[in-house]
Computed example of a mutant assay.
Amino acid sequence: MRNQLPWEDLLALVLNATGETLYMVALASLFTLLIGLPLGVVLFITRKQGILPAPRLNGALGAIVNLGRSLPFVVLLIALIPLTRLIIGTTLGSSAAVVPITIGAFPFFARIVESALDEVEKGRIEAILSMGGNVRHVIFKVLLPEALPTLLAGLTLTVVMLIGFSSMAGVIGGGGLGDLAIRYGYQRFNNQVMIATVIILVILVQGVQTLGDRLVRSLAHRR
């Protein structure tokens, strides 16, 4: 029982770690969306049969995306330490963890975007082009609006993955619930902390998934 913490101390630790996790996930989600969405659009339109064919660019971007998706996240965390230090100035803390989390997630989301756009009815694209529309019109008036429910479902899946990534960032001192679980739960054999972090992570994942599913259903009904 010597490793058990007073409930007040445990609550303070868990609340602080939860705040750090939410901070990491929120920022990483924003950057993943800002990078992954346009990248997925470019991958789609530059296909050989796309509306703006550019096989060499498509191949290069596809290779980068596939490389990012093929590396285990723990390996990526360690490999990106020099880049994280260059950008943030340190490799410790929640802000530093956002860099590898984002880099680990945006290739995954880019492929989701590409797949979502691939489901858009080709006749709608051809209709816009036949009426004199350009690539911008196709993207913003057909592709993104038509694929919005699927994109939102993919974003929900990505945010759930980011919660897991934020936990693994604790391996390199990234803060958050993962760091709390390692430092207090694992290294100090404190079952209180381990149970608390698991419960909070399950609640976060369930909350994000439930909210995302409701938004997707709402959009689907409006359509």
Rank of each mutant, 00 (worst) to 15 (best):
62 G>Q: 13
191 N>A: 15
179 D>A: 11
63 A>K: 06
161 M>H: 09
162 L>A: 05
19 G>Q: 13
127 A>P: 03
216 V>D: 04
85 R>W: 07
30 L>I: 12
163 I>S: 11
8 E>N: 10
174 G>F: 11
103 I>Q: 02
136 R>G: 15
146 E>T: 12
41 V>F: 00
73 F>V: 07
220 A>W: 01
143 L>C: 10
221 H>L: 05
110 A>T: 08
43 L>W: 06
67 L>W: 10
138 V>N: 09
195 I>L: 14
12 A>V: 13
192 Q>N: 13
70 S>Q: 12
33 L>Q: 01
68 G>T: 12
124 R>Q: 11
1 M>Q: 09
138 V>H: 10
134 N>Q: 05
113 V>A: 04
78 I>R: 02
187 Q>A: 13
31 F>S: 04
64 I>V: 15
23 Y>I: 13
111 R>F: 10
197 T>K: 00
49 Q>F: 07
32 T>Y: 01
172 I>Q: 02
125 I>H: 11
38 P>R: 12
196 A>S: 14
193 V>K: 11
94 S>N: 07
160 V>D: 00
22 L>K: 05
3 N>M: 11
181 A>Y: 01
151 L>F: 09
131 M>H: 09
190 N>P: 13
215 L>S: 02
53 P>L: 09
64 I>Q: 12
215 L>I: 08
28 A>F: 09
58 N>E: 15
137 H>D: 15
168 M>G: 06
156 T>D: 03
113 V>K: 02
176 G>A: 10
33 L>F: 08
75 V>M: 07
108 F>A: 04
126 E>P: 07
27 L>S: 07
3 N>G: 15
184 Y>H: 11
23 Y>M: 14
55 P>K: 13
207 G>C: 02
8 E>D: 14
26 A>K: 02
143 L>H: 05
177 L>Y: 05
7 W>S: 10
66 N>Q: 14
219 L>Y: 05
119 E>W: 02
101 I>Y: 04
207 G>N: 01
35 I>C: 10
71 L>W: 04
58 N>Y: 11
200 I>A: 02
222 R>V: 14
74 V>S: 03
164 G>C: 07
83 L>A: 07
135 V>P: 02
106 F>L: 03
184 Y>G: 12
162 L>D: 04
137 H>V: 04
133 G>A: 10
66 N>I: 09
185 G>K: 07
216 V>C: 06
171 V>P: 01
207 G>K: 01
150 T>C: 06
178 G>P: 06
51 I>S: 00
142 V>L: 07
97 A>N: 12
28 A>R: 05
167 S>R: 00
97 A>F: 08
26 A>P: 01
196 A>Q: 08
98 V>I: 14
54 A>K: 04
79 A>W: 08
204 L>H: 05
195 I>M: 11
104 G>V: 08
15 L>Y: 05
52 L>C: 12
4 Q>A: 15
186 Y>H: 03
158 T>Y: 03
128 I>Q: 07
189 F>I: 03
85 R>I: 09
183 R>E: 11
138 V>I: 14
140 F>N: 10
27 L>V: 13
147 A>F: 00
147 A>D: 01
39 L>P: 03
190 N>L: 14
15 L>D: 01
176 G>V: 03
98 V>F: 04
161 M>Y: 09
72 P>A: 06
170 G>F: 00
105 A>S: 01
138 V>P: 09
